[in-house]
Amino acid sequence: MTTRRHLLAGTAAAIAAGGLLTRPARAHAVPDLDMQLWMEEQEDFLINKQVASGALRGPYDHNLQPYFSNWAAQGLAAANTVRSREALGNYISWYLDHLNTAAEDPYGIAGTVSDWHYDAATGEETSTGEYSSTDAGTTVPMITAFDAHRTGDVALQQLVMDNLAKYELMAKATCETTWGVRNSDGLCWARPDSKMKYVQDNAVVYRGLFCLAWLEKQAGRMTQYDYYTAKAEQTRKAIIDILWHEDRQNWSWGRGVNLLKESDPKAAFMPDAWCQYWQVQLRILPAINRRSVASWSAFSAANPRWMHLEFDNSFPHTEMAYSAVQMGELDNAATMLATCRERFAGNGWALPWYHGEAGHSMRVARRLIDAGWGQ
Rank of each mutant, 00 (worst) to 15 (best):
A121C: 06
T128L: 07
A110K: 07
A232D: 06
L159G: 04
V325F: 11
L7G: 03
G374Y: 03
Y227I: 02
N347H: 12
A268R: 14
W278M: 08
T112R: 03
L20C: 11
I47L: 15
I47N: 13
A230I: 03
F146C: 06
A12H: 15
W278L: 03
R182Y: 06
E41P: 05
A72E: 03
G348R: 15
S132P: 02
R182Q: 14
T11N: 14
A219T: 03
D44F: 14
G108A: 05
E168R: 13
V113Y: 00
S93Y: 06
P286N: 12
Y167F: 13
S114C: 09
H62E: 15
E246R: 13
Q50L: 12
Y95L: 14
R290H: 15
I369S: 00
W179P: 03
A13M: 15
V205W: 01
A17P: 14
G208K: 10
V140C: 10
G356K: 11
P192V: 07
P286G: 10
V204H: 12
G75I: 00
Y277Q: 05
L337R: 04
T144F: 00
L46P: 06
A25Q: 12
P286H: 15
D162E: 07
W71I: 02
R23W: 10
D226R: 04
A145Q: 02
H317G: 01
L212K: 04
H360A: 07
K231W: 10
T223F: 05
D115S: 02
G54D: 09
T335C: 14
R255D: 02
R305Q: 11
T2E: 10
D312I: 09
E319P: 10
D44G: 12
S93F: 04
C175F: 07
R5D: 12
Q375N: 06
Y131V: 05
P106I: 07
D185W: 13
A302I: 05
T81A: 03
M142H: 08
